[in-house]
Simulated assay, not measured.
Amino acid sequence: MNNRRFTLEEANAMLPRLREDLAKLQELVKQFEGLYQELKQAKAEYLLQPAGQEGGDPFFEMEGRLDFLRIEAELFIENFTRQGVLLKMIKPGLIDFPAVVDGEEVLICWKEGEERITHYHGWHDGFAGRKPFPDA
């Protein structure tokens, strides 16, 4: 576990790169979900075909692509962790940065669509407990 603590300035400086990584992760998730639905449909149609057809696994390629997309997404998620930030939600993006405000352990929080970080909340308060960051 990374014990890094961020200042508001450090967190805001990381945002452009984190936004890029989040967008790539969201695209991977979108591709995964689309391919998963295609695979489900293909398997349902396959089950309706007459029995006794020979051949290899007709879903091998799609399942392999799903595995690849899953592994790629996991690498992006691990990258957030390695940087010391907490990816709370992929869509919409929600990222927390551990910090100390007025001597209290808190999470500086950013939600996709916000231009910069301006709020924080306690570790157990969640997004609903957001407070304006002093001097933001």
Rank of each mutant, 00 (worst) to 15 (best):
residue 93 G to R: 14
residue 84 G to C: 07
residue 89 M to S: 12
residue 83 Q to Y: 04
residue 88 K to N: 11
residue 90 I to M: 08
residue 66 L to Y: 08
residue 91 K to Q: 10
residue 78 E to C: 03
residue 66 L to P: 04
residue 76 F to P: 00
residue 66 L to D: 06
residue 93 G to W: 15
residue 74 E to R: 12
residue 82 R to K: 13
residue 71 I to C: 06
residue 81 T to H: 14
residue 77 I to L: 04
residue 92 P to D: 12
residue 71 I to R: 14
residue 85 V to W: 02
residue 74 E to A: 11
residue 93 G to K: 11
residue 84 G to Y: 03
residue 64 G to F: 04
residue 75 L to V: 14
residue 68 F to N: 08
residue 90 I to Q: 05
residue 80 F to Q: 10
residue 87 L to N: 04
residue 78 E to P: 01
residue 76 F to E: 07
residue 69 L to Q: 03
residue 65 R to K: 08
residue 75 L to E: 14
residue 86 L to V: 09
residue 90 I to S: 05
residue 72 E to W: 07
residue 66 L to M: 06
residue 75 L to R: 15
residue 85 V to C: 02
residue 75 L to W: 13
residue 80 F to S: 06
residue 89 M to F: 07
residue 80 F to L: 10
residue 88 K to T: 00
residue 65 R to E: 08
residue 73 A to R: 01
residue 93 G to H: 14
residue 81 T to Q: 13
residue 67 D to P: 04
residue 92 P to F: 03
residue 86 L to M: 05
residue 75 L to H: 15
residue 66 L to N: 05
residue 89 M to C: 13
residue 90 I to Y: 05
residue 67 D to C: 06
residue 89 M to G: 08
residue 81 T to V: 11
residue 82 R to A: 15
residue 83 Q to F: 05
residue 73 A to V: 01
residue 74 E to K: 13
residue 91 K to T: 14
residue 65 R to I: 03
residue 88 K to C: 00
residue 66 L to R: 01
residue 75 L to M: 10
residue 81 T to K: 15
residue 76 F to G: 00
residue 66 L to F: 07
residue 91 K to A: 09
residue 84 G to P: 00
residue 88 K to M: 02
residue 75 L to K: 15
residue 80 F to N: 09
residue 69 L to G: 03
residue 81 T to Y: 14
residue 92 P to M: 11
residue 74 E to N: 09
residue 68 F to C: 04
residue 72 E to D: 12
residue 84 G to M: 01
residue 89 M to D: 15
residue 93 G to N: 13
residue 92 P to K: 11
residue 80 F to C: 09
residue 72 E to N: 07
residue 72 E to R: 13
residue 81 T to N: 12
residue 91 K to C: 08
residue 86 L to C: 02
residue 81 T to L: 14
residue 82 R to T: 09
residue 91 K to W: 10
residue 92 P to T: 05
residue 77 I to R: 06
residue 73 A to L: 01
residue 80 F to I: 11
residue 74 E to M: 10
residue 69 L to F: 09
residue 75 L to C: 11
residue 64 G to L: 05
residue 92 P to I: 10
residue 71 I to A: 15
residue 75 L to G: 15
residue 91 K to E: 11
residue 66 L to E: 11
residue 90 I to F: 06
residue 74 E to C: 07
residue 93 G to C: 12
residue 92 P to C: 02
residue 83 Q to V: 08
residue 66 L to Q: 05
residue 68 F to A: 10
residue 66 L to V: 10
residue 90 I to C: 05
residue 73 A to M: 04
residue 92 P to A: 04
residue 73 A to Y: 03
residue 81 T to I: 13
residue 73 A to T: 00
residue 92 P to V: 04
residue 77 I to M: 08
residue 75 L to F: 12
residue 75 L to S: 15
residue 85 V to F: 00
residue 83 Q to R: 14
residue 66 L to S: 10
residue 91 K to R: 15
residue 79 N to V: 00
residue 66 L to K: 03
residue 88 K to H: 01
residue 89 M to V: 09
residue 72 E to H: 07
residue 64 G to T: 10
residue 81 T to R: 15
residue 82 R to G: 13
residue 67 D to R: 14
